[in-house]
Amino acid sequence: MDKKMCWILIFVTIAVNVVMVQWTVESYLGQEFNQVVIYSGISVVSAFIAFFVFLNWRKLEYAEENQQ
């Protein structure tokens, strides 16, 4: 995975998480608890993806600098 893909993935996870927060709150207010858990689960997975992609980006970014 190159750095450009890392940027793309991180921004995709932001978009996913914004939508999931909205849907989670809506479902919570509607007492649709099964859906709250589903949306929240997707959101947490997305957050983990963002974290690991960020770690990967950091490795690539600073490895490049160290080589110079």
Partner: peptide
């Protein structure tokens, strides 16, 4: 990019209290 990644993680984890409350509600 660090801020963007942090924002994404924060948004993702902000839904956890809702799911905990939801599981208590169920």
């Amino acid at each position: 990019l660090k801020t963007a990644a942090g924002a994404s993680i924060a948004l993702g984890l902000s839904t956890v209290p809702f799911s905990v409350r939801a599981m208590m509600g169920m």
